[in-house]
Structure formats: structure tokens, C-alpha cells
Amino acid sequence: MSSIKDIQEEIVSEFEILGDDKESTIFYIMELGGSLEEFPENERKEENIIKGCQSKVWLIADEVNGKIHYQADSNTDITKGLISLLIRVLNNRRPEEILSADLNFIDRIGMGSIIGSQRSNGLSAMIKQMKLYAYAFQTKQNA
């Protein structure tokens, strides 16, 4: 499995192909949302909603063989695309890898100016929640 660093490099080069064209970049992000695995209906509940996002984002995490498996969904396609990028980088990794991950691809592809400030705040909230899950599982593993 590729490292967090390698996957980020992949993403950065994919976005480089799109160049400065904001329109095709947003369409691309929306297309990416389609790659999210089906979110379990029974988990679509209030307690799984990430606070701090304008649109609704549901996130759950499981531990499989010491690695964290994330599942997420949103009611907006752009947000689904964003979370699919985060999942692509962080899914099925050990908690300590996730906690120490430097997610520099977001700045490198200039995500802030692509999605605007409201959604950037939401994106930060998603990352924080994913890291919180990692912290919780790490604490459990070390107990």
C-alpha cells in the first residue's frame, strides 16, 4: 500500500493536470464524490454528523486489524468529493500514522481558493474529526 506521502503526491499531480480552471476542478471534485463506498443508512444519524460543516457530513470509523476504516457521506456532492480525498489518503492506516500525517496536499493544490472559506472550515472540521477517531483508537489500543 502506498504511503500517505505517495498518495498525496498522486493527488497533487492529478490536480496539476486540471490546471487553473476552477470549473473543471470543481466538476472533478464532484466526480470524486461518486467513489465513496455506500454509507450505512442506520448510521445516518445526528451523533455522526461533523460539527462545523455548513453541509451535512456523516463520518464513522471502525478498527480492523489495528487499522482504521472510515466511512463518510454528505448531502452535497462537492463535500463528498472532498471527503473522498481525505479517505483516500487516511483510510486503512494505523492510528499513529493518521495522527502524524501532514496533509499538505490541501494547500499544495490550492484547495482554499477552489472551495472558498466556508467549505475550507468544513474541511478542517472533517480532518479534525478523523484525527479524533484515530486518537480514540490509539488510546484504546494502548490501554
Binding site: K22, E23, T25, I26, F27, M30, Q54, S55, N75, T76, D77, I78, I115, G116, R119
Partner: peptide, 14 residues
């Protein structure tokens, strides 16, 4: 089938 926020952001890109 689309969220208004997405539509707005795509129009903004235009």
C-alpha cells in the same frame, strides 16, 4: 438531486 450550495459554487466558477 443537487444541493444548492454545490450549484452556487459551480456557478461561481463560471
Amino acid at each position: 438531486g443537487m444541493h444548492p450550495f454545490d450549484v452556487g459554487q459551480m456557478l461561481d466558477a463560471k
